[in-house]
Design a protein around this nucleic acid. Structure first.
Length: 110
DNA sequence: TGCTTGACATAAT
DNA sequence: CATTATGCCAAGC
């Protein structure tokens, strides 16, 4: 595995449970600022027992990226729900609440 | 070696 | 907010 992939895994591993991060954020944290696609690609080549919570990574809209697999996306949604992440009727996540803020404490509404 | 595709993001319409 | 077009880097063929 490349050094680049390792950085991506590390960034993903930083995501707290019950929260999600966008590929862009991961890319930045991994030192690949502006290269979100490589993040996705790195995860695509991700080994199963890597221990990386890839299911906490979603696209900029807060929804699960549909891939050709057709099964992994469902599993991702299930895993996120188990962690307490709520999905909209459209299958999207409210990034305003569940979007990970790699900086300070969780966003508290009201 | 060169072309095409890809777990995406961002700006413009 | 949704859709369309463009840019980025790496892997596959």
């Amino acid at each position: 595995v490349s050094n680049r992939d390792a950085r991506v895994y590390a960034a993903v591993a930083r995501i707290p449970r019950g929260r999600v991060a966008t590929y862009g954020q991961i890319a930045t944290l991994a030192g690949l600022h502006g290269h979100a696609r490589q993040v996705g690609y790195a995860l695509h080549t991700l080994p199963e027992g890597s221990g990386v919570p890839w299911h906490r990574v979603v696209n900029a809209r807060g929804e699960i990226s549909p891939r050709a697999d057709g099964a992994s996306d469902r599993a991702q949604k299930a895993l996120l729900e188990l962690e307490g992440v709520r999905f909209d009727p459209y299958g999207r996540i409210d990034l305003d609440r569940f979007g990970w803020k790699p900086r300070s404490r969780p966003a508290r509404h009201r």
